[in-house]
């Protein structure tokens, strides 16, 4: 079809590279998405406490990590942190080596980037929640913590699910930038394969399809989750 040549796919080395790439992409995406959601929840909870210094701290965190390119954050973590002294001595060689591996740097910066976006998403969910529900919970004697976990978080999560889906899809695609700091994910190997075979178009089409499939699975799962969690009167519960 279209004169495309996929004979290079028969090479076991390239199959192994693609498989390793997909696995590393999934690892990175899963880990950073989970941590990002956790950061988002904790941050949003922190904001509901209305403590002056905590608000300022969370806001600073959001501004720093939302407003800088994740690529720059990764490069910073990978090259700069070790230069600033974040190093350990490797017992097997006695050399001073950077503490954070490439994968750790990518996972951390993606988690923080996604986390900053998730805080904003959760916050918007909480803020758009009808005031009357919170007042009702208060009058029933719910404390701060119980009110957040039992009333605010469940409702806010439902409200902000579409926004969260956006953030997670974006985060998934941003994992491709980790190739710059040598994390051997899908794009890292894809680049090497088309440099070896010069079948640029074919490799890019395949990688594009892999991303479409993987991200579609994610968005499909999120849509199902949204439908499952819908409650009468809101969003999909209409």
């Amino acid at each position: 079809m279209f004169g495309l040549d996929y004979s290079w796919l028969a090479d076991p080395a390239y199959q192994q590279w693609l498989l390793t790439g997909v696995i590393n992409t999934l690892k990175l995406a899963t880990l950073s998405s989970s941590v990002a959601i956790l950061i988002g929840m904790l941050g949003a909870f922190g904001l509901t406490l209305r403590i002056f210094w905590l608000d300022a701290l969370i806001e600073l965190f959001v501004e720093v990590f939302r407003n800088t390119p994740p690529l720059l954050q990764m490069l910073f973590a990978y090259f700069t942190l070790s230069s600033l002294g974040l190093r350990v001595t490797d017992p097997s060689t006695g050399l001073s080596v950077p503490l954070l591996s490439a994968f750790a740097c990518a996972a951390i910066s993606l988690s923080l980037f996604g986390g900053a976006l998730a805080i904003e998403a959760f916050r918007s969910g909480i803020e758009t929640m009808p005031r009357s529900i919170i007042d009702a919970a208060r009058s029933l004697g719910y404390g701060r913590w119980a009110r957040f976990w039992r009333i605010e978080a469940p409702i806010a999560t439902r409200i902000c699910l579409p926004a969260l889906t956006n953030i997670l899809t974006n985060l998934f695609k941003t994992t491709s930038q980790a190739s710059v700091i040598t994390v051997p994910e899908l794009m890292y190997y894809a680049g090497q394969i088309y440099n070896d075979t010069f079948r640029t178009l074919e490799v890019m089409i395949l990688v594009l399809l892999i991303y479409v499939v993987l991200v579609s699975i994610l968005t499909f799962a999120m849509a199902r989750l949204e439908a499952f969690m819908a409650f009468p009167g809101y969003g999909r519960g209409h």
Binding site: A13, A102, S179, V180, T182, Y188, G191, Q192, N195, D196
Partner: peptide, 22 residues
């Protein structure tokens, strides 16, 4: 370096863990 023609030889033949940059 990513894209070097000998990268496959390095990993497959010499068994090197290649850390390839742009």
């Amino acid at each position: 370096i990513q894209g070097s023609y000998y990268n496959k030889k390095m990993t497959e033949e010499f068994g090197i863990t290649l850390v390839a940059f742009k």
